[in-house]
């Protein structure tokens, strides 16, 4: 089994001002490795949602907020694209975040909290590793061949 072929890394201050740059980085890599524009768009949005959660929540109660950094790692394997977002802020219990029932959610007109739902919808796998104050990671995977055929169009391969 081949090991990871390529890695791309970005370390950046945890600020909403940098979301545009993060999206540009991720979309350039996703495009370069051959995803169609639909899938590039899904990866772009999932990454934005993960980073927005970190910027808005992980460091929210810390001082020196602007000096905190956010690490983005992209690993390219022969069969999949893996995106790992890491921060060093306060964590959360991923099991405490319930997947919203969208009908109920919309009926109540709730604000926010849509990010994790989108990430799980857009990517093939989403996994959290939480060590509060030490390291929190969200790992998201997209396979080059669309196993689920989500109905948004087919991959290039």
């Amino acid at each position: 089994m081949p090991t990871t072929a390529y890695e791309y890394r970005l370390r950046i201050p945890s600020e909403t001002d940098n979301l545009e740059l993060i999206r540009e980085f991720v979309t350039k890599v996703a495009d370069k490795v051959g995803f169609n524009s639909d899938d590039v768009g899904k990866i772009e949005l999932a990454c934005d949602e993960a980073c927005t959660n970190v910027i808005k929540h992980a460091y929210a109660s810390d001082r020196n907020n602007g000096k905190k950094s956010l690490d983005i790692l992209i690993k390219i394997d022969f069969d999949k694209f893996t995106l790992v977002v890491t921060d060093h802020g306060k964590g959360f219990d991923p099991d405490s975040i319930k997947m919203p029932d969208m009908q109920e959610y919309l009926a109540q007109l709730k604000v926010g909290g849509l990010g994790i739902y989108l990430m799980k919808t857009l990517m093939d796998e989403v996994d959290y590793q939480i060590q509060p104050g030490v390291k929190n990671q969200v790992k998201m995977v997209k396979y080059f061949i669309d196993k689920n055929n989500s109905g948004f169009g087919e991959g290039k391969k």
Binding site: L19, L45, L109
Partner: peptide, 16 residues
Amino acid sequence: TYISSAGLGVFMGYIE
């Protein structure tokens, strides 16, 4: 050209 859930959330916040 692009929208994330933070953008959609704005509409939810004022519609009521």
